[in-house]
Design a protein around this nucleic acid. Structure first.
Lengths: 218, 218
DNA sequence: TCTTCTGTGTGATTCCGATCACAAAGAAGA
DNA sequence: TCTTCTTTGTGATCGGAATCACACAGAAGA
């Protein structure tokens, strides 16, 4: 299977959550236009995306839900587990731990890290918090490949460097700083204020509708 | 000033946080290539974006930081305040309140809402929590136009409907559900697992670098 | 078995965003 | 003042993503 573009991967991930959200076994088949309606895209878009992962549908019946889920898991590499670390056990970090642990999946939080000694050894939602000094050791021991970064902006780059040094492969950054990481480390910037500001812009403008990437209105 | 595309708005917001992050008054002027380097884009991209909001630079000197900030605030409508509500005062909701209140800006959280009676009347990081029943009244009283939605997936659509009914103009959704809202309400879906899954995909693939939208590697 | 009708698979096209490349501006130095 | 050199502003170009449009598949019903 060839490499899929980021845009498509993102939509595939969304289709997947949509499917899991549907009552399991409620419908054995779904039409592309049904998925499209839920996702606010065109049906042809959905078909194209599903084609990219080699899914087959049947005319007049649509796509078989179970087979589709399997293909999606496989394409998104969610058929194996991924060990995740949360760096920064402040409010946001702990909230994310609780949030992600609740939605049990193959993305499994294995450890938290912080600089505050008061947090060392504490357990949040079943996840133990370690000192930043032990990051490399714990990461290696637990086989952690992904990190969620929710430290203050001033500490973000330093923490990122440390993560890269520890061999992390991907970082999800919540700190309002544009991080610099090597090319071989995947980086996803999720600065919340950015999206709030985007909302502020589109709500205060007498805008005709506008649709793109993440921003959708209807 | 004409309507700016979502992509550009997003980058403008990022330029803005980059500028605020710079020591104020440290440099009076910045070159497009300096901003570009920090943002991991091309300098021509930065110039194009700044052109879209009518900023003027001077050859050999770059862009004046203060003037640029002013233009950005104006373009992004951040020169007026926007009242924001947080719906769902669980871990995530409270973390976001703390996080956003810390970074004081013109985006100001005015109220929180929850269904749990235990939260009614409580104050989190200076923000008072109300019952969902009082949503419409409080929203109107406080002039709230934006909402951050962090309720469980099952409650998300209902809460969204209520928000729309209360006249909210934009929703930032953290619940893993594709919401349906009227066209005139701006919607930004920020489902965290989606981005984690995207990371999982790109870290487990022997991918050549790939760059697009939010996903950037270097 | 044959026809019909609905939904898939996909080439063709359109649209939009990013990049390139270069002319114009204008500060610095002679 | 004139030349030089760097950075801006922007038309032109490129590429990729979304949309369109339609041939094809095949289930349902006669």
């Amino acid at each position: 299977m060839k490499l899929i573009s980021g845009k498509i991967v993102e939509r595939l991930a969304r289709y997947r959550t949509f499917l899991t959200e549907q009552a399991p076994g409620h419908r054995t088949h779904l039409f592309s236009h049904e998925i499209a309606a839920a996702m606010r895209t065109a049906d042809s878009q959905v078909r194209r995306d599903l084609m990219a992962i080699g899914t087959q549908g049947v005319p007049r019946h649509g796509y078989e839900v179970d087979a589709l889920m399997e293909k999606l898991d496989q394409a998104l590499c969610l058929d194996r587990t991924h060990a995740v670390a949360v760096v920064g056990a402040g409010h946001l970090g702990r909230a994310l731990i609780a949030f992600l642990e609740a939605s049990r999946s193959t993305l499994c939080i294995k450890a938290a890290f912080d600089t505050d000694p008061a947090t060392f050894g504490r357990v949040y939602s079943g996840v133990k918090c370690h000192s930043m000094a032990s990051l490399e050791a714990v990461t290696a021991r637990e086989g952690i490949t992904l990190a969620i970064l929710c430290v203050p902006a001033s500490a973000a780059q330093g923490a990122a460097d440390q993560l890269v040094g520890a061999g992390i492969r991907g970082i999800l950054n919540f700190a309002p700083v544009a991080l610099r990481v090597p090319v071989n480390v995947a980086l996803e910037e999720l600065v919340i204020t950015t999206y709030l500001e985007k909302l502020a812009y589109f709500t205060t403008h007498p805008s005709k509708e506008r649709r793109n990437g993440r921003h959708e209105e209807r």
